[in-house]
Computed example of a mutant assay.
Amino acid sequence: MDEGNSIIYGLEHQTRALSPQYGESDAIRFLIGTQSLKPGTNQVHVVELEEDTGALHTKVFRHEIGEIWQLRCSPHDAATLLTVHNAYDPIAQQCAMGVSIYKLPTVEVIPKDLDELSAMQSRNAEDLEHVTTIRPEKPEEEVRCAEWHSTDPGRVGVVYEGRLAVVDLASGAALAAAAPDGRARLKFTAGKWNPHQGHSQFAVLQDMHIKCYDTRADGAKPAWTIDNAHRQLARDLDFNPNRQFHVASAGDDGALNIWDYRNGKEPIFSRSDHSHWVWTVRYNCYHEQLLLTGSSDARALLTAAPSVCRDPDDDKQPVLEDGVLQSYEQHEDSVYCAEWSAAEPWTFASLSCDARLVLSRVPRHFKYKILL
């Protein structure tokens, strides 16, 4: 991929689900889920970027259950993924959501011989191997998101609109649960495992607030909270991979906030560079001062936050300044997802509702400032 240039991959159907292939450490791969209302037309696309040439290679798999609202690759196995989906249930005569676990028949994307090349060029979609499906207790219950446990491949945290459940994939049983507190019964909107604190905490977004539950407890009260994290609905959060008390959040107020949840009265870092709702925020797993955001203003922003990534006894000046490093404006619709590559720390992808995937790189001069 040339310096300063992005690569665009277009799909046939609308999209809002994107995930890097976490279990793959050598190839730059992203998985995309489509959101078509027409039964039997949804797909999972595996997109691989050839770093040296900038060429894109793809494989397409059928997703028969329904439109895909979220997709997450397993951090434990490159061939395993989950999707949060919505489809019409003819028995209940209504739409019903669920979480399905699948395995890819192969993780290889770039063909190794001529027979594989001709098969890829035919563009025939292959079948995913269905493992199991987690369904809500009530058909009308909405599933907000699902997240793999950081260390246990047999556990998945599922956020419903009114509760959190940690599900054992082998038995389908809920190992832990939590529900919104307070009389207002504000609904959950998203959530994520805390990679610190023994991998036992799960943080959820509840309206404008962040609440984190210890899954070893009864779930009646959160372990910690950040009230009014945003002035409007909170949309997404991500934990700093290196600093155990830092969490970033994004919301409908157009803000990116970073918090030290030991004292959540005021954010330790805040930017309002987007002009509309911010749907997603992601820390770079290797360089914590770099964050990605995607917004309904049709932009993905690369932002630096070095001022909150310094140790108290570090006298060196940050090599980057706080603020937006670069704006990526190749999208024409809401950017629902932005994700860093799991294999290469300087490559990332953004996905918009108009079925457009944009692969980009951190500009070289910022990269060299960080490394040198």
Rank of each mutant, 00 (worst) to 15 (best):
D253I: 06
W224T: 06
L357N: 01
V362E: 00
L82V: 03
K112Q: 15
H230P: 00
I134R: 01
E321A: 14
Q121L: 14
D89L: 07
A146R: 08
G162W: 03
A248D: 06
V47D: 04
V362Q: 02
L11I: 00
G172T: 14
C95P: 02
I210M: 13
L71E: 02
S327G: 05
A173E: 12
D77M: 00
P195W: 05
H365I: 02
A176T: 04
S341L: 08
L301C: 10
D252H: 06
K265T: 13
D311H: 15
T133V: 05
D354W: 12
D273S: 15
L128N: 03
A92W: 11
R183I: 08
S150Q: 10
G23N: 01
V278H: 02
L320R: 01
D127M: 11
Q289N: 09
N194K: 01
D252F: 10
G294Q: 07
P180L: 07
T293V: 00
H365T: 11
F188Y: 15
G33V: 09
T58D: 14
A342V: 11
R271F: 13
Q244A: 05
Q326G: 09
T106Q: 12
R271L: 09
G10V: 13
R282G: 04
L56D: 08
P345E: 01
R155M: 14
I68R: 02
K367Q: 15
L49P: 13
N263E: 13
L11K: 02
N86W: 08
H199I: 04
I226L: 11
T83L: 02
A304R: 02
V247S: 02
H196I: 00
L104W: 03
S100Q: 01
D322P: 10
T34P: 09
L164P: 00
D214P: 11
K138E: 06
W148C: 07
A223C: 09
K367I: 04
K192S: 12
L256K: 07
V335E: 08
D52C: 03
P105I: 04
D77V: 07
Q14E: 12
R123L: 13
D252A: 11
R144E: 07
G66P: 08
D311V: 04
S249V: 06
N194Y: 04
P222F: 01
R299M: 09
R135L: 12
A220T: 11
I110F: 11
E161P: 00
E339P: 03
N240F: 01
K369F: 07
S150C: 15
I101S: 04
P180I: 00
Q317F: 04
I268A: 08
N86R: 15
H274G: 03
S272M: 14
G23D: 05
A184M: 14
Q14A: 15
D333N: 12
K369S: 06
G251C: 08
I226R: 10
V362D: 08
A177L: 15
V47Y: 01
R155W: 07
I91K: 13
D52N: 12
L104E: 03
L169S: 08
D236L: 05
I8A: 05
P105C: 03
R29A: 13
H149C: 06
D333S: 10
Y22Q: 14
Q289R: 10
E161D: 10
K187I: 05
P180V: 00
F188L: 15
E329W: 03
H196M: 00
S171Y: 00
N5P: 00
K38P: 13
L320V: 04
E12I: 01
T41V: 11
L371C: 10
R72I: 03
V166E: 14
Q317N: 07
D52F: 12
S341I: 01
L359I: 15
